[in-house]
Simulated scan of single mutants.
Amino acid sequence: MDMDHVASNGLVLLGCGKMGSAMLAGWLKQGLPSGSVWVIDPNPSDWLQSTGVHINADLPNTPAVVLIAVKPQMMGAALPTLAAMGNGETVFVSVAAGTPIAQFEKVLGAQTPIVRAMPNTPAAIGRGITAIIGNTHVSDAALDLAEALLAAVGQVVRLESETQMDAVTGLSGSGPAYVFHLIETLAAAGQAQGLSADLAMQLAKATVAGAGALAEAATEDPAQLRVNVTSPNGTTQAALEVLMDETNGFPALLKRAVKAATDRSKELANG
């Protein structure tokens, strides 16, 4: 089961908002024929209409993949229309936050191959990271296919169990917002030390983006990179003594933040 299988049997994309559009753009760029893609979306964008894909048209009976990219609250109306494709060869892949595999099995049928995925917002520029887990009916080949489709918007990792999805939500799913807030507060702190607002923001954005890129590219781990730029009794050490404080610094703060998001994810999944 590969992209040729998708090209010949078809792919149905349910929902084409930011995430759906980013994935579709990636697939078309990789050479998936637009005629092999059916999109169901109540408000198709001008861009979508320019791609040549089938929009709100009659669907193939047994597409290779149905990729669900609608908001969870829209799922109730949209999913039952696809139930006829359940319990068969069609692989369902969901990027809808907080919707457990069991919920899909209830609507689509218990024998349906279902892959649950948690991407994050940098997927919009092809720099996302997505965690995936399949139910027992997902073959290795189907999981490989789901990974290949989601790789269009960034890195993909596989989980050992669906219970890990709440922690993934707390770390990488919600995590971009933590970094955006870091940029905001870093810029504000620079302004407090006498820099103009525009200059402080430019420095903060470039610093966080550059350090992130360096952390990904470097062979050393982030702890070593930190040590490399920390001169004894220098300016970086003075700041790190504040940030690394076990009670009030990053270690305690981020542990609490990720736990709060993880706990909320569990609550939402349990209705």
Score class of each variant (00 low, 15 high):
P176D: 07
R226Q: 15
G126F: 05
V95R: 11
T99E: 04
V93C: 07
E267Q: 15
A238T: 12
D198A: 13
L82N: 05
P72K: 10
W47M: 02
T235D: 11
G15P: 06
V70C: 14
K255V: 00
P122Y: 04
A260C: 03
L11M: 11
D221Q: 11
N61V: 11
P119A: 05
E184P: 02
A188S: 09
G26M: 03
A69D: 13
I125G: 02
A123G: 07
A146D: 13
L268H: 11
W38K: 02
G10L: 09
L59R: 08
A269P: 05
G35N: 09
K205G: 00
E216C: 02
V156I: 10
G210I: 13
A187T: 08
Q202V: 00
E147N: 09
A25K: 08
T207A: 15
N120W: 08
G212L: 03
L254K: 00
D140R: 10
K205P: 00
A200G: 01
E162A: 06
G88M: 02
L48G: 08
L203D: 04
V242A: 14
V153E: 02
V12N: 11
L182P: 01
E220K: 13
D144Q: 14
A192G: 08
A204L: 06
V156P: 00
A177K: 03
G76Y: 05
G175I: 02
E220R: 12
A188G: 01
Y178C: 01
V66N: 09
K255C: 01
G17P: 00
S139N: 06
R256C: 03
R264W: 14
D46W: 04
C16A: 10
M118P: 07
Q191W: 00
A146C: 04
M244V: 01
R256A: 15
F104K: 02
L28M: 03
D58H: 07
